[in-house]
Amino acid sequence: MPSGKQIMADEIPVLDLAPLLRGTPGALDDLGARLRRAFTEVGFYFVRNTGVPEALVQAAFDAAARFHAQPLEAKLALPFDSNNQGYLPFRGNTTRMNAVDGIKPPNANEAVFFKRELPPDHPDVLAGKRFRGLNRWPTDLPGFREAALDYAAAMEALGRRLVPIYAAALGLPADWFDDKFREPMFTLRMTHYPQQEPTAPADEWGLAPHADTSFMTILAQNKVPGLSLRLPDGRWIDAPAPEGAFLVNGGMMLRRWTNHAFLATPHRVTNRSGQERYAIPFFMDCSYDAVMAPIPTCVTPDNPPRYPPFTYPEFMGEYSGANYGQRGQAAAGVALQGA
């Protein structure tokens, strides 16, 4: 079935980082205004002239394809765990939390998740802090670990570059978020969407309609279509894929932190392209211990604080096991992010 109406070219704001990187006066304020429009009217924006090499992006897509081409036994040797790390097999999760239009059948994808690379003797690892575990890597894929970590490092750098624009969009000093993103939490998800048959049920999704959990999701453009977005007016639209740009959206963490001033726009994936589809979304959040109270500029007499202050582990723990049934309950898993 078609995923939605073709979007008009000007419906998703575009943030061009070139003036900011050149130090052009007023560039930050201009980008802040564009981002504010993005998150109050659409929920997504494109960012271009990021400085991220296309070859690095392609290497990450190639790494995802290589990982999922392995025998199932090799992938299952890296089982998904309570830290939201590891491999989830095909139809290994069901979108429940943040679901749109009801719970659908299990998602027709397989995925592997990686977080920040920590050494075995890191204090958080030794203390058993949740979501601060060790990544596990395939043993027979030369260069895979390096490609994944290089891409994660580039996305973290891009995310950090974008954070001051969020501050400008919210009427805050450019450095307002700095102490909250000293060491951002992040997840790199490498997803494989096999071809779905034309005769598949209408409610079978590669990834069912949902909103992300993240502060920021950065998605490299995919040459194989399948992603669609739901605008605030209720229309589902096919996501365009301008060359060289990244698509960025916010999730429920951003929405909660901004006291509902910013949107967490639902999206979904189906793969009826006749090709194998891979995606490499990068989900970035604040530091593990940062306290997120409703942002002051988002609190008014008509919009008092909707939530008490919270931290990353408290927020993610709230969603534990929601989307993975028995597998998630056994692992206390939270891997809610997708794209």
Rank of each mutant, 00 (worst) to 15 (best):
R132P: 06
V47Y: 01
E73D: 12
P53G: 03
R48I: 04
G32I: 00
I12M: 01
A74R: 14
G86F: 06
T24W: 03
F177V: 07
G244V: 03
P123W: 14
D178Q: 14
T24Q: 15
S320T: 10
Y45K: 00
A220G: 03
V299C: 03
E183Y: 10
A332T: 08
L229Y: 08
L118G: 06
R132D: 03
M216T: 08
D81C: 08
E146P: 07
P294A: 02
A322H: 15
G325A: 02
R130Q: 15
F315P: 06
G133Q: 08
A157H: 09
Q70A: 08
E41S: 06
Y319P: 00
D289F: 09
R36T: 04
A153E: 14
K129F: 10
D238H: 05
L35N: 00
A261N: 00
P225S: 04
D140H: 14
P308T: 13
A64L: 00
N83R: 07
A127W: 05
K5W: 12
N303P: 01
A9T: 14
G43E: 05
P296M: 07
F246V: 04
P2D: 11
H122A: 15
L78W: 01
Y193I: 03
L72P: 02
S214T: 15
A18V: 06
A322V: 12
P266W: 13
Y307M: 12
T213Q: 12
W205C: 05
R189P: 07
E197N: 15
M97N: 12
E41H: 00
D124P: 10
E110W: 09
G26Q: 07
G51Q: 01
F283E: 12
R34M: 02
R37F: 03
V112E: 04
I7T: 09
A99F: 05
H210M: 01
S82E: 14
R136P: 01
M253F: 11
T191Q: 07
A65R: 13
Q275W: 11
